[in-house]
Amino acid sequence: MDKDVLELKRMANRLRQDILTMLVPAKSGHPGGSLSAAEIVTVLYFREMRLRPQEPHWSERDRFVLSKGHAAPVLYAALAEKGYFPREELLGLRQTGRMLQGHPDMKKTPGVDMSTGSLGQGLSAANGMALAGKLDKKDYRVYVLLGDGEMAEGQVWEAAMASAHFKLDNLTAILDLNGLQIDGRTDEVMSSAPLPEKWRAFGWHVIEVDGHDVGALQRALAEARTTAGRPTILIAKTVKGKGVSFMENAVGWHGAAPNAEQGQQGLKELREEAVHLG
């Protein structure tokens, strides 16, 4: 395996271990949609994005908006790995008086660029950041991670129209297409298919990609960077709960934290995978 790919896979594995480690003491939270986005977040934070963890408000930084804010654990894991805050904070997730809120809070957590959690709002905020970047003639890029359940929110489409209207080619959206939402399969709760056609019809450059293939994700993000005159969306096919056998494709793991025993079982699997990755 390519050395870079191996390194990124190891990092995604670490983020997954961190997700379980923080969710067990939190006793609540969203493992499924955090685990599905581990490679996406890994590639963004450890390859794609221009960041200064010691200077979280650096004006030239690339921005990341986690529109599917319930996947906060995967973002927190990445921010801790990058050194935005001490790793011990991960164990304070969702607890009174601590910095890691149930959903991302830009006022409380260094490295969080936008407060999110109410679905449907992230792309609008990302549009605003991208417009500001264009106005200021800065070359930073803006990334937004959307969920597929979130596609039912009308505001997403208001914003999608605007991103194309304003030709926001400094904006890249990534859709974590894991196929499940709280009440069941996304195509049963509210069909959003065909998503590539919809986004294309809204004026976006669409790239369909395997959301667990770190190499493919990097190539797609590079293509987005060189696509001029319109925004790009990566429609990233993923497996909800990826990496933990009993959570994979299981709707019940959308919003339930593992207990200590389940956490240990999941960590055991992930550590075995880590050994395999060397």
């Binding site: 549009n127 500001a132 106005l135 914003a159 605007a162």
Partner: peptide, 27 residues
């Protein structure tokens, strides 16, 4: 260049303003 007509889409109007503010503008 500093005026954005968002069309008849008030949710996106406010959300976009929030993003502009997060990037240092006074919307």
């Amino acid at each position: 260049e500093r005026f954005f007509n968002m069309g008849i889409a008030e949710q996106n109007l406010i959300g976009t303003a929030a993003g502009l503010a997060a990037a240092g503008k006074i919307p």
